[in-house]
């Protein structure tokens, strides 16, 4: 299972943002993370959680919690396979 702590850690390190600013409901754009920068965060998270985030899902990720939810869904679906 993906954890908020790991996501917070990756965003914090990749984007140089204080971890306490990264809450589940925080919009990525409010952290200064645009769609291109989000790709680098997702790239790191794909490695950490051993998932592949399809291109069409990227645009649906708005908040920090969206990342957590999508990764968990991907992990669950791959486990079922």
């Amino acid at each position: 299972m993906a954890s908020l702590e790991v996501i917070r850690d990756v965003i914090s390190k990749e984007m140089n943002i204080a971890p306490e600013l990264i809450e589940p409901g925080t919009h990525l754009i409010d952290l200064g993370i645009d769609s291109l920068m989000a790709l680098t965060v997702l790239f790191q998270l794909e490695d950490r959680f051993n998932v592949e985030i399809p291109p069409d899902i990227v645009d649906t990720i708005i908040t920090v919690d969206d990342i957590l939810t999508k990764i968990n869904e991907l992990q669950n679906s791959s486990e079922h396979v």
Binding site: L36, L39, T40, F43, E46, E52
Partner: peptide, 9 residues
């Protein structure tokens, strides 16, 4: 299977 997303820019 993949490379860093910012490879091009």
């Amino acid at each position: 299977a993949r490379v860093h997303p910012l490879t091009i820019p």
